[in-house]
Design a protein around this nucleic acid. Sequence first.
DNA 1: TTAAAAAATTGACCGCCGTCAAGAAACTAA
DNA 2: TTAGTTTCTTGACGGCGGTCAATTTTTTAA
Lengths: 221, 221
Amino acid sequence: MATHECVQLVPIFQELAAPQLDTIESIVRHHHYQAGETVFSADDALDQLMIVSAGQVKVYQLAANGREQLLYLLQSGDIDGEAALFENQRRSSFGEALVPTDVCSIQREDFQGLMRQYPSISINVLNVFGKRLTQLERQTTSTATESVEARLANYLTETAASLNTDTFKLPLKKKDLATFLGTTPETISRKLTRFEQQGLITQKAGKTIQINDADQLLLAE
Amino acid sequence: MATHECVQLVPIFQELAAPQLDTIESIVRHHHYQAGETVFSADDALDQLMIVSAGQVKVYQLAANGREQLLYLLQSGDIDGEAALFENQRRSSFGEALVPTDVCSIQREDFQGLMRQYPSISINVLNVFGKRLTQLERQTTSTATESVEARLANYLTETAASLNTDTFKLPLKKKDLATFLGTTPETISRKLTRFEQQGLITQKAGKTIQINDADQLLLAE
DNA sequence: TTAAAAAATTGACCGCCGTCAAGAAACTAA
DNA sequence: TTAGTTTCTTGACGGCGGTCAATTTTTTAA
């Protein structure tokens, strides 16, 4: 009966065979969250690794002045809780389900045991971390050095490229997109209007955007 | 004769005994750089892990508009080249020695072999990555949501706290500090002058700063 | 010690974009 | 559908901080 549910689809366990997946499945806990529900909070004890098996979770931090910064958008198969690997760490970020979401969790000691037993897991987790580091490095550089217009243009072309189409629906509300790009919903509205006036994009119904000239868009300063 | 040089002082090898360190030492290459020299460049093949055994290396990226973003300041014992763990990745950042610096490097295949043979290494590397991720998350949040004044105030108090003193010399030129905080040298000069006028700090000779009121400083908006 | 180069400071200017507010549009749920 | 709520848009305004330029200070090197 156990179809390994979330465990099966997580890349970090990909080298493992069925009986080992059974073992893991038996130490995993399952959770379900409604859209808008809190999956975890800053200051929670960091004693578990989380695996998103279905749905979408936004991970964000709060700055001292109360402003929100969206860091990651976890999709099915993504993991979080990296610092779960140290002792005595606390979370510094919040997780919130954006749609109905299924999550599995593994206790820290259990996961550390798995890593010692199956070294391929550690190496897979290192890969995940490395990619996340690379992404964050780029995000830091671009928010610190480029204009909002350039960041938005980049976001649009990258999203289009990753979806392999030039017409797509924005996967986030403008408020969330704003906290991701380090700006405000008002500014995003204005910039999109500006891009449209320049003929670079076309805004269609329901957050749908068509990119008309990706090359020119990327020249936005 | 071999005193394990750099290998000995690197936390990621801390659980290993002397004969194992000898093995590692034998597969390591040693390099020396003068102040100002390039340690690595973006677009270099990412086929090795680097270990700083002495000196200081600044790691930075270039944005599309040519502006520089300082990401890390590697000290003795720090490692870099995380993405060395994937295949077919290229560097996205530059490394430059700020003072005369010794670096050891290990080829990717060699290091992956070590990780498989000694799982404690993987877990130590995971710790390093986790801390770096946490640091970058904070940096992203603060550059995206807080004012330059608040970021500078934070930097000063954190530096003082980590050095356990309220009088210290800035470890970076204003130009580098500016690229770290996502601003310009001119703005840093002005903000420091302002802090001094408010009595929060005192600027002394040779980049030395004394913090007079850390609590008040942190309230800077 | 002195000259040259690099770094830092200060002033003037101004544009980007954040804030506040009001109205329109788009969802959501009976 | 209709009412209510949330989200989005648009306008007006102003301040933070980036840029350019000139001067001073510090560092480097001869």
